[in-house]
Amino acid sequence: MSQGHGHGHDEHAPIRHDGHSSPLARRARALEALLTEKGVLTPADIRSAIDALVSRTPADGAKLVARAWVDPAFKARLLADPKAAAAELGIDLTSYARLGVVENTDKVHHVVVCTLCSCYPRMLLGPPPAWYKSLNYRARTVADPRGVMREFGLELPPKVEVRVLDSTADMRYLVLPRRPPGTEHVSEAELRSLVTRDSMIGVSNPQPERAHV
């Protein structure tokens, strides 16, 4: 069994998806067994943690963004005090680290990275995508954000200022993306469906719904 040494950038090679391919996967099973046998954790602890992980989606993030698009006063509150604004929509963030919300406009564009690890507003977006945690994204986003965004299909005009936010364990960021043009008459519920996870990280902009052809 190979540990796969020497494939530093190849973090998500298919072989890793097989639980039996990684010796560390087995050690996780062993830890689970030992910790539950010793009563350090219960099987219910682990089950509910997995449940929480797989059921969380970017829906709450999208809810905040869509409301901010239709309600300028809410947007102002969201930017000033994100947790209080989220509570207005029934989203309880009190037990989480500090949260910053930053607004993308036609003059300034924010993109979020965690150069040290993988800090991410999980409470609003669900678990981070694999690429967000990859060594390449972490290395390049601070050095060449425009090049990174280009890989995601976003080409920003040179006059737009790019700001890169480096998350920490104590401070997470949500990007409030630009409302797509031509959506002035779209309902808040429909707007939510336009808000993508990637646009709330800042690597892309939300697109208007495709017009009927």
């Binding site: 950038h9 996780a28 954790l41 682990i46 943690a49 040290l116 995508p129 390449n136």
Partner: peptide, 30 residues
């Protein structure tokens, strides 16, 4: 890793977490 030299293109493929990855996350969260 910020600015780490030699970093290549980003693999943007979505990755479904394997059972053992969910377990690893759950152990930490618990």
């Amino acid at each position: 890793r910020g600015g780490w030299p030699g970093a290549g293109p980003i693999d943007r493929q979505e990755h479904q977490l394997a059972d053992w990855e969910l377990l690893a996350d759950a152990l930490v969260q618990s």
